[in-house]
Design a binder for these strands. Structure first.
Lengths: 186, 186
DNA sequence: GTCTATACTTTGATAGAC
DNA sequence: GTCTATCAAAGTATAGAC
């Protein structure tokens, strides 16, 4: 019995492992252990080894956010897109049981390897949110502050809910942020 | 030329390394490389190896926060203690160039090793802040929400400022949070 | 594409001389 | 207390059979 993979099937599996163990904590043996995929297959799809695997995961995560979050924020009805962001983010991060890989990579020296990708992910999130807020009637300064506060607040909520091992904290934090946004967009 | 250390001298050095490299990324050889302290000395002070080193660092960080942040929040003038928290936190985290070790450990599987210490650090921070907010005139519900929002906001600001490699983001985020607190305490 | 075997490096940890 | 030497285990990566 042997399973044949495509690269696209492997990336989401790798993503979960990098999320849980971090870049340094993720070893090829633990990947094999959790997925059943041998080193031969891994190096066939990712000749650049672990670094290429993490890069592919980052690109995949980025593409998901671009499609599900950023584009609606830039193009759709502003209030609807912001409301959708809160529910999509809550689902994506599984109410805080899943962390943000990009944020986690930003904290330690892994950042050095992927600084461009990491910076880009957050810049584009903030800018897309800024765009929606302005279309919803915020001044530019107000929108910039609120966009940064929203994105940082989500990251902080992930840290806190993991630290307290309490998913209610995450959902409640998102709720507080959403109310704050609503009050400013009035 | 050989330097003789005490355990208390080593812990802050270890703290910086764990902060920059994370738990898994910190190897004994990199500790020696950065500090000049050999394995012999390290195992003399920390017979339990890397895990004991990280534990000692966590205890040291916790003690600093207890003394510099939590106790004033619980016992001193509420408004002054909150104001002092913002400046002390900004200094401690070096305007976002330094990360929160406890928050970083919370994100990956390192959490499993130190879940009690990590949870305690954040619980006590939130509770101390809650106490100050209530003494400053907040209702309990309002204070709970705001305390969580403040602590999560600091953690998120650290992630964001590292991701964007922009320390202005951190200071500005703290400023926004401080204003929010002021407006509620009126 | 996947597997097994293997090369080579680095890891955490220990022992013993000084 | 610190040093050097050394260990077994785990790390990344490669080669070649199938």
């Amino acid at each position: 019995m042997k399973t044949v993979y495509e690269r696209a099937d492997i990336v989401p599996l790798l993503a979960e492992i990098f999320r849980e163990l971090g870049y340094e904590g993720t070893s090829l043996s633990r990947i094999t252990e959790r997925t059943g995929i041998g080193k031969g297959s891994l190096y066939h799809f990712f000749p650049g080894g672990k670094e290429e695997m993490a890069g592919a995961v980052l690109a995949d995560v980025d593409a998901w956010f671009e499609h599900a979050i950023y584009q609606p924020l830039r193009k759709d009805d502003a209030r609807e897109a912001i409301a959708a962001m809160w529910t999509n983010v809550n689902d994506y991060f599984r109410s805080g049981r899943r962390i943000c890989l990009v944020g986690a990579f930003a904290l330690d020296e892994t950042r050095e390897r992927f600084s461009a990708e990491i910076g880009d992910y957050f810049i584009r999130w903030i800018d897309a949110l800024l765009s929606a807020l302005m279309r919803a009637g915020c001044s530019e300064g107000e929108a910039q502050t609120l966009a940064e506060e929203g994105v940082a607040g989500i990251q902080g909520a992930l840290v806190l809910s993991r630290a307290l091992d309490d998913r209610v904290v995450f959902t409640r934090s998102l709720d507080t942020l959403a109310k704050r946004f609503d009050s400013v967009m009035r």
